[in-house]
Amino acid sequence: MELLSAITEFAAREPKVYGLILGLVAAAILASVINVAAMLLVWLERKVMGDFQSRYGPNRVGGRWGILQLGADAVKLFTKEDIIPRGADKSVYVWAPIVAVATTMLIAGALPFGAVIIDGEVIPLVVANMDISALYVEAVLSLMAIGAFMAGYASNNKYSMLGAFRGIARMIAYEVPMGVCVISVAVMAHSLNLVEIVNAQQGIWFALAQPLGFVIFAICLIVDLGRMPFDQTEAEEEIISGYNTEYSGIRFGLLYFQEYIVMLLGSILLVLLFLGGWNGPVIPVITFISPMVWFFMKLLIVLVALIWIRVSLPRFRIDQVTDLGWKILLPLSLINFVWAVAVGLYFA
């Protein structure tokens, strides 16, 4: 009690300093949770891929369920020699992995990570509940290509540069239909706030109200994540490994780990926009965390689906990827937008 009263007095006396300290603590906690969740996601993907393909790997080595494999990889990445290529732009080369991870962390602050029920009221768990959080998250997702471009440009390697240019071409082709789908959801929900978008799906999920938009957004999200079958920026048989070819050690680890952080955050965004977020029947025994249970069940289904797609489909050519974005998904996203406006006006 004395500690609590001392904190209250300090907050009243120094509100700006208290707000800064509180923000730093919250950011540290959020970053820790996201990184631990991304580590578990690495393990989950290895386990599921090993089961799908019936092959030996981390699901049969590294202790029970392959958990020790994560620790072995961490030790390997931390202890490998950090080599900077001759002729590379050293400052850009060093900062590229940091920028790649930092841009993904910008997304986390605006994403609700579920909700809890207190005194019969649903309280969303979000750091910054912004009125335009849906647009903000979609805009920051487009910044991911900056880290890849910096890495490809600074490496002084033509294959790395080609991978970076592929990332830019892919981003431009798919950010437009993805943005149109976000606007379509906002029109139907009458809000750009992710919390209000989730609340608007208490009657029906937007995946059912606009199934075309759901499919388009899911495809665009997979492209944005750079995962199979849309990982042309690091297609090993074509461009060695793309933008991260010249990286080693912990810098390569950051670029590799950033992909899984974005996969986690992108899946959360899909659940919030189209799958009703934390909406679901109240579970009597665990009423307090009932919304969290529904939220993480939906999130796990989306993550397993992304892994399933990765192990099932072959990689597309880069021209097929750009054609799909400009010639097919963009016109379909406009059709879905017209549908969303009509439905939104009818229910308004």
Rank of each mutant, 00 (worst) to 15 (best):
136 Y>W: 10
331 P>A: 08
15 P>G: 10
316 F>M: 15
233 T>F: 06
196 E>K: 09
183 I>Y: 11
324 L>Y: 06
215 V>F: 10
191 S>N: 03
294 W>I: 04
141 L>R: 11
62 G>Q: 01
89 D>L: 01
183 I>P: 01
209 A>V: 05
64 R>M: 13
167 G>M: 00
319 D>S: 08
125 L>V: 12
234 E>V: 12
338 V>R: 09
18 Y>M: 09
268 I>S: 07
210 Q>N: 00
145 A>L: 03
340 A>V: 01
251 R>V: 04
48 V>Q: 09
50 G>H: 01
324 L>G: 08
215 V>I: 09
43 W>I: 10
222 I>A: 07
263 M>V: 09
264 L>N: 08
117 I>P: 08
64 R>D: 14
185 V>N: 04
66 G>Y: 02
308 W>H: 03
69 Q>T: 01
330 L>Q: 06
69 Q>Y: 02
296 F>C: 05
266 G>F: 03
304 V>L: 04
286 I>E: 08
323 D>P: 13
246 E>D: 09
96 A>H: 00
293 V>S: 05
257 F>N: 05
316 F>V: 15
284 P>V: 10
8 T>H: 14
165 F>D: 05
135 L>H: 08
229 P>I: 08
231 D>I: 10
185 V>R: 06
250 I>G: 04
275 L>D: 00
305 A>D: 11
324 L>P: 04
328 I>T: 12
171 M>E: 10
264 L>A: 04
348 A>P: 00
31 A>N: 09
299 L>T: 06
336 N>S: 14
303 L>F: 14
156 N>V: 06
143 L>D: 02
60 R>A: 03
38 A>C: 06
279 N>E: 07
11 A>Y: 12
25 V>A: 15
251 R>N: 07
172 I>S: 02
255 L>R: 01
96 A>Y: 01
23 G>S: 13
100 A>E: 03
1 M>L: 14
208 L>H: 10
255 L>P: 02
100 A>Q: 05
220 C>V: 15
40 L>C: 10
17 V>Q: 11
158 K>R: 11
251 R>G: 06
247 Y>M: 02
51 D>H: 14
226 G>E: 08
277 G>D: 05
23 G>A: 14
28 A>I: 13
102 A>M: 04
314 P>K: 03
82 D>L: 13
132 I>W: 11
326 W>E: 13
81 E>S: 09
22 L>R: 15
100 A>N: 03
323 D>C: 14
131 D>Y: 14
305 A>G: 09
142 S>Y: 13
166 R>E: 00
291 P>T: 11
47 K>Y: 00
111 L>N: 07
126 V>Q: 03
92 V>A: 00
73 D>T: 01
190 H>C: 11
240 I>T: 07
166 R>W: 04
345 L>I: 04
9 E>V: 14
92 V>D: 09
35 N>D: 12
340 A>T: 05
171 M>F: 14
227 R>Q: 00
100 A>Y: 04
171 M>S: 11
333 S>Q: 02
33 V>H: 04
303 L>I: 15
204 I>R: 11
34 I>W: 08
63 G>Y: 09
335 I>V: 14
337 F>L: 02
36 V>R: 13
347 F>V: 15
52 F>N: 12
305 A>W: 10
331 P>E: 09
247 Y>G: 01
322 T>R: 13
190 H>F: 02
